[in-house]
Simulated assay, not measured.
Amino acid sequence: MSEKINAVVCGVNFGSFYIKAIERSNKLALCGILSKGSEKSRRISEQYNIPLYTDADEIKDADVVIMAARSMITGGRSSSTVKKLLKNGISVLQEQPVHHLEVRDLISAAADDVKYAVNNFYRYLPGVHEFLAYAEKLRAERKVLRCRMSCSSQVLYPLMDVLYSAAGGAESFTAQKAADGAMSVITGEINGIPYFLDYYNEYTENIDSSLALFFDLKIDTDGGNLILTDPAGDVIWQPHLSCMRDDESNTEKYRSSMPMKRLYSGDIADYAQLYEKAWPEAMERSVLDFIGSEAAELKARHLRQCEMCSMVTTAAGAPVKIETPYTDSVML
């Protein structure tokens, strides 16, 4: 592609990560900011010498708008702006989470050739990318027995997106609460495969802060377990334990094999590297993949994943607000 893809970012708080992603890209160009006109948005507009739009109808030359402002499910009203953009023929990549009823409404507002998707840039981090590649190989070669996973409510959608890909889609999906508490246990099946989800269902005033955990995923098969420790962490293969007797064949080969094999080593040293490099790189890939995808496939996939999230949150019940967030600590 010789010409750059023109992108407008709406929302300059979390959207600042997308701005970094566009700034580092040789395929994307920042052509405007859509905002209510905050001081921060004015500074960014002046810094990059780009238009500051205060109404979606003002945008004419954008190939994509990245919506990084909150949707209804997190107390925002960005979806009304998304609908206006889609009706104007402008494709929109919307930051998660978004309720599946909102997604259904937005898809109905978009023409067949106008693209819309809920974004999960975490899947474009190297570790998650490697995990999904190994998961695809496992589906072809082994019998998948179950999936075990955990997440905080803020990152349920990214986890459901990764689970959807790891399972090869979601022709069937169910969710029921098995145990209550701050860490609810949700059980169900995806494509006939049982899953167990430890779901952290508390939040603080700043919904994006104080995550008690991010997300992890384990796929158990008849030959061993594939483990994603964290989106920025390791991918591990854990063969089944088998205590062999001395007179059995291949004893030395088994004894010399590793009980846990690291397939990918997370190489993110600190949060500075995560925010300044890893996230923007993943966001760039997510935007480029969105641009290169088919509109109908995007809409069907992301609607299904949002439905999966809704089923989990319905089973878990309303989240509990805590006044004092858990404090950070350093393990010595």
Rank of each mutant, 00 (worst) to 15 (best):
M1E: 09
S2T: 15
E3R: 14
K4R: 12
V9N: 01
V9P: 01
G11N: 08
N13S: 14
N13P: 00
N13Q: 11
F14K: 09
G15P: 08
F17L: 14
Y18E: 00
I19W: 02
K20F: 06
K20T: 08
N26S: 10
L30I: 04
G32H: 03
I33N: 06
I33V: 10
S38K: 02
S38H: 01
R43C: 08
E46I: 11
Y48W: 05
I50V: 14
L52T: 09
L52N: 07
Y53W: 00
D57Y: 09
E58S: 11
I66W: 06
I66A: 08
R70D: 12
S71N: 01
M72Y: 15
T74G: 00
G76P: 01
S80L: 08
T81L: 13
V82I: 13
K83I: 15
K87I: 14
K87Y: 13
N88F: 01
I90G: 10
I90C: 05
I90H: 07
S91P: 03
L93F: 11
Q94G: 03
Q96M: 02
V103A: 03
D105M: 08
I107T: 00
A110G: 07
D112T: 11
A117Y: 05
N120G: 07
N120D: 12
Y122Q: 10
Y124I: 02
A133D: 13
Y134G: 11
A135Y: 04
K137F: 07
R148S: 15
R148A: 12
S152I: 00
Q154V: 01
L156N: 02
L156A: 06
L159T: 01
M160I: 04
D161G: 03
S165Q: 10
A167Q: 11
G168L: 10
T174D: 14
K177G: 00
A178H: 12
A178T: 15
A179R: 11
M183F: 09
M183V: 05
I186M: 04
I186K: 06
G188Q: 08
I190V: 13
P194G: 13
Y195P: 04
F196L: 05
Y200I: 02
Y200S: 04
E205L: 01
N206K: 11
N206I: 12
I207Y: 05
F214R: 00
F214L: 08
F215C: 15
D216A: 12
D216I: 03
D216R: 05
L217G: 14
K218H: 04
K218F: 08
G224E: 15
N225M: 14
P231N: 00
D234G: 07
Q238M: 09
H240S: 07
H240L: 12
S242P: 01
D246T: 07
D247N: 05
D247V: 08
E248Q: 06
N250Y: 13
Y254M: 10
Y254D: 02
R255S: 02
M258T: 14
M258C: 15
R262G: 04
D267F: 13
D267G: 15
A269C: 05
Y271A: 10
A272S: 09
Q273A: 13
Y275K: 06
Y275H: 09
E276L: 14
W279H: 00
E281V: 02
E281D: 10
E281S: 02
R285Y: 09
L288C: 15
A296C: 10
E297V: 15
L298S: 02
L298D: 03
R304Q: 11
S310G: 12
M311Y: 03
A315M: 09
G317W: 06
A318S: 07
A318K: 04
P319Y: 01
E323G: 09
T324D: 07
S329N: 09
V330L: 13
V330T: 13
